[in-house]
Nucleic acid binder design. Structure first.
Lengths: 166, 166
DNA sequence: TTACCTGCAAAGTATTTGCGCGTTC
DNA sequence: GAACGCGCAAATACTTTGCAGGTAA
């Protein structure tokens, strides 16, 4: 990442934090900077290892807490999973998933069910040439995120209370 | 799941195991059956809880080992993640991912980069009516799985040895 | 000054592993 | 009978939490 762009992003980050009422600490600044600089979507530990070089006293717990704070504030996104633990599916053929963001329930969706069929071959999906050259793409899956019927009903009865909801 | 279909699937499973040289134990049979019966893509623990009702002496470790074995044999698929630990991304806008199945490296792909643009609204993607009614879909992400350039090179130099590769 | 944030250490949860006994083939 | 698979318990990995002292605003 170019130095000027990095500076620009860091500046935007500072402002965003201010708006959100988040204190600007060197830990937060360096964690965010590491996230911008480390390619490939680092894990909390990977970020910790990077930040530690500059601030040896930082703790892994702080990195976890901070990333969680950032995510809840919409400053970063968690690549992962809608569900953190392993989940298995007896279906091994190419298919997509509907995941409930509330209860983590997962439903399968057969590609044939799509009324606007998509090509099976990921290359035909419009991946730019350059990316295909770098990345030998073998397969793709669409993950639809939403709220299932049961959860919608439950939420309607007992909606999220307080002003906490971002 | 209808009883007849279940029986049919179990039969196919037995045959598949035989072909693969996997011993047929009641643990494996009941774990696979639970996977077919429990909706929503159960976790190892959820499967354990189900199987335990019938075979109280089964251990959770066996469930883990068995599911792993099944996955490596192509009998089941892991819904999750290409990477088990948390991974963060500074980008919060709607975007897709390219994930290297070897090193777990993740790259972002902007929807605009697709030469064949897809609608932003997941409903326009051809989700069948019925599913939309049940599931209030808010968003979708495409995950392209493949092997990155660095890993391709590495594999070319030191290809997977032995007959283990399925 | 005061509320917010950090580091530490301990706890919690998820998953893996080594090993001796039991079962399948 | 030999190879394979199982249950147990301990180990490991990842993540969260409570609290006392430190820091930003």
């Amino acid at each position: 990442m170019k130095k000027s762009l990095l500076g620009q992003r860091m500046k935007a980050f500072r402002e965003r934090c201010k708006d959100l009422g988040l204190s600007l600490t060197y830990q937060r600044l360096s964690i965010y900077k590491a996230l911008l600089q480390v390619p490939g979507h680092p894990s909390p530990d990977a970020i910790y290892q990077v930040v530690r070089k500059t601030y040896p006293s930082i703790s892994l717990a702080t990195v976890y807490k901070t990333l969680d704070r950032f995510e809840k504030s919409g400053l970063v996104s968690k690549v992962n999973p809608l569900h953190e633990t392993a989940r298995y599916d007896p279906k091994v053929e190419h298919h997509h998933h509907l995941v409930c963001t509330e209860c983590k329930h997962v439903e399968d969706l057969d590609p044939q069910e799509l009324t606007r069929p998509l090509p099976l071959d990921p290359r035909s999906l419009g991946l730019p040439e350059g990316r295909c050259r770098d990345f030998d793409v073998a397969d793709y899956t669409i993950t639809f995120k939403g709220v299932c019927q049961a959860c919608r009903r439950r939420l309607a009865r007992a909606p999220r209370t307080g002003a906490g909801a971002a």
